[in-house]
Structure formats: structure tokens, C-alpha cells
């Protein structure tokens, strides 16, 4: 058989084999069979010696053409097979994406902490610094400096836990304010969050341990209008832009004038409901202008400086914020309760 015939036969063989094979392995075998060191085309090249000088370049060219064509054919077929194989694997790996799995559990801080963070963000944004102090406190700071002298009814054992005659569990975070006033010079702009104690039995709205956030501002020319604006900002931040603050005259020993600050009822938005006893307002915090006597006792000149103070019950605003009906849930630590909380990420 002539080389030319042989080449034609190889063309046919190549076409047939390529057509019939369907694995990458078979393709590799064919590649070796055709183009390998001992492959068919290579053997033809070895037979070139038998050819005449004129024929040699022609045949050489034909063989080289074949080599290139075969390589191209094999590569194309390989790519097709690979694609088919991948397609097959992807089919095989198909999952039921709806099959349920247990979620990795991400915990959450206590609801008090969620709300405290909002409150602290609000006040630090207004230039307030967070200051903390001891929970077991000297009578001097908890009462005396706040214009609640010895034997004042507010100090009755029914309200205050005593350690001894001079030491109490702080009944508010105001002693932190007193400590700050005696150690720093105005301007002062602080908030004091923390745990406080009152000798109340536990029920749905009372607890012997709870948390307060008190604020204090002292500077020249501080007015009750400044207090109003500060609390307005707090109310809007926590409960929304439609919430307003209403001042109502009240009495606290360490402020004069004093006020109860009511907020638009967060439940009915002021329309009147059961929660606000149809008044449209809910009592949220006590505040007022720092009593000049307190300033004086703390070594601040009341002729030059004035200031305001306010006290927020953290549990109260947390319960309002999340509609918690029973305070006891807050201290029980039942995960069925705690798992419901998460950080809100939407504005107001």
C-alpha cells in the first residue's frame, strides 16, 4: 500500500474512532495511537526514507498536515468530552436546596443592653460622656449631697437597702453625679448608667434590682429649655419622630424646678389607649434643674453655674420599647424570651 493510501486510510480511521469514542481515556488512547512515538503517523514518517527525493517533501507536507489536523480534531473532541463530563458531574452533584438544616446560633445581648446602647449612642452623640460609679455607696453621695438629709422620708428602710449607718446600696445612679460634681469643674455633660437597688418586692412592674440612666449637664446659662431639647432628642431617637415630650410640675429633692417628663404614648402614638389610660401620654422620667443647694454642697458656684439632671428607668423604657408586660422575664434568663431579641437595623 502506498503512503498516500495509508494516509487516506488513517483519515478514515481517525474519523471513525473519534466518532465512536466517548471517554477522555479512549481519546487519550487514540491520541497515542495516532500521534504517539510509536503511533501511526510517526511510523509513516519513518517510512519516508523509502521515498524518492521528489516525493519526500510532498509526502512530508501531507503527513504534517495530517498531524496538525488530527491534533485539532482530538483537542476539539477533548473539549467536548470535558464539557460533557463536567455537565454530568454537575448533574450528579445536584442538591435539594430546600432540605432544612439547623442554623448556626448567633446569640444576642439582653434587651436592656440593646436599649441602653441606643440611649448611650443618642447621648454620646449630644456630647455626653459615660461615667460609672460604685453600687455599694456611701450615704454621703447617695443622699447627703443630693439634698436628702438624715431622717428624710425618702431614706426610709422600706425604700433603701442598708449595709450599715453610712453605707447603702445606691438607690439611684445620682451618686455618680455627686461624685463627678465634687471632682470635676464645669462644664459637665455626663450620663451615668447602672444598676440600682430599692427595697421593693418582685412583681410585674417592680424589682429590687433595676437599672437607671441618669444625665447631668452643668455649665453657665443652662436652662430648662436645654433640658427639654435634650429629652426631645432622646424621645425621637428611641421611639420615632412623632414622639413628643411634655413637662409636668413635680418634686425631687435634688432639682428645682422639677418636672415629670411624659412622652407621647408609644403604643397608640397619642391617640389614647389602655396603656396610657386614654391620656395619650405615658410617664417616663423625672428631671429638673439641679437644686442650687446641691451645686453648693458639691462645691459649684450656683451664682455662676446652672444645670439640669434627669433619670430614666432602663427597664421601663425597654418594656415600652418591646411591649414586655412582666418585668420578671427580664431577670429569669429563659432563652425562649431572650431568643426573640435582635438588633434593629432600620432607622427609627
Amino acid at each position: 500500500m502506498s503512503i498516500r493510501d495509508e494516509l487516506n486510510r488513517l483519515d478514515e480511521e481517525m474519523a471513525d474512532e473519534l466518532k465512536s469514542l466517548d471517554t477522555l481515556n479512549a481519546l487519550e488512547t487514540l491520541r497515542v495511537h495516532m500521534l504517539g512515538k510509536k503511533g501511526q503517523l510517526t511510523s509513516l514518517l519513518r517510512m519516508m526514507g523509502q521515498l524518492s527525493a521528489e516525493e519526500r517533501p510532498q509526502i512530508g507536507q501531507l503527513i504534517n498536515e495530517r498531524r496538525e489536523r488530527f491534533m485539532k480534531m482530538l483537542d476539539e473532541r477533548q473539549a467536548a468530552l470535558q464539557a460533557k463530563e463536567r455537565e454530568f458531574r454537575l448533574q450528579r452533584e445536584r442538591l435539594d436546596v430546600t432540605e432544612p438544616r439547623r442554623l448556626p446560633e448567633v446569640g444576642c445581648v439582653h434587651p436592656n443592653t440593646l436599649v441602653l446602647n441606643e440611649v448611650v449612642d443618642c447621648f454620646t452623640g449630644l456630647g455626653f460622656e459615660v461615667v460609672e460609679g460604685p453600687e455599694v455607696e456611701l450615704d454621703h453621695f447617695n443622699f447627703e449631697l443630693l439634698n436628702i438629709p438624715k431622717n428624710h422620708p425618702a431614706r426610709d428602710a422600706q425604700d433603701t437597702f442598708y449595709i450599715d449607718d453610712n453605707v447603702v446600696l445606691r438607690t439611684h445612679t445620682s451618686p455618680v453625679q455627686a461624685r463627678t460634681m465634687t471632682t470635676r469643674k464645669p462644664p459637665i455633660r455626663i450620663i451615668c448608667p447602672g444598676r440600682v437597688y430599692r427595697a421593693d418586692e418582685v412583681d410585674a412592674t417592680h424589682s429590687p434590682v433595676f437599672h437607671q440612666i441618669e444625665g447631668l449637664v452643668i455649665d453657665e446659662g443652662v436652662s430648662m429649655g436645654d433640658l427639654k431639647a435634650t429629652l426631645d432628642a432622646f424621645a425621637r431617637r428611641l421611639y420615632g419622630a412623632d414622639i413628643h415630650v411634655r413637662f409636668r410640675p413635680s418634686f425631687f429633692p435634688f432639682t428645682e424646678p422639677s418636672a415629670e417628663a411624659d412622652l407621647t404614648c408609644v403604643s397608640c402614638r397619642g391617640q389614647g389607649c389602655r396603656i396610657c389610660k386614654n391620656t395619650g401620654w405615658i410617664e417616663v422620667l423625672g428631671c429638673g434643674m439641679v437644686n442650687p443647694k446641691v451645686l453648693e454642697m458639691c462645691g459649684i458656684d450656683p451664682q455662676r453655674y446652672s444645670g439640669f439632671a434627669f433619670g430614666i428607668g432602663l427597664e421601663r423604657i425597654t418594656m415600652l420599647r418591646y411591649g414586655i408586660k412582666d418585668m420578671r422575664l427580664m431577670y429569669e434568663g429563659d432563652l425562649r424570651f431572650l431568643r426573640q431579641f435582635r438588633q434593629d437595623v432600620k432607622e427609627g
Binding site: P104, E105, G107, C108, S207, V209, M330, G333, L338
Partner: peptide
């Protein structure tokens, strides 16, 4: 995955 709790002091 931890949840914060508060108990009395």
C-alpha cells in the same frame, strides 16, 4: 451563640 442574661446582685 451566647445570650446575655441578668440576675440580681
Amino acid at each position: 451563640g451566647y445570650y446575655e442574661t441578668i440576675t440580681f446582685s
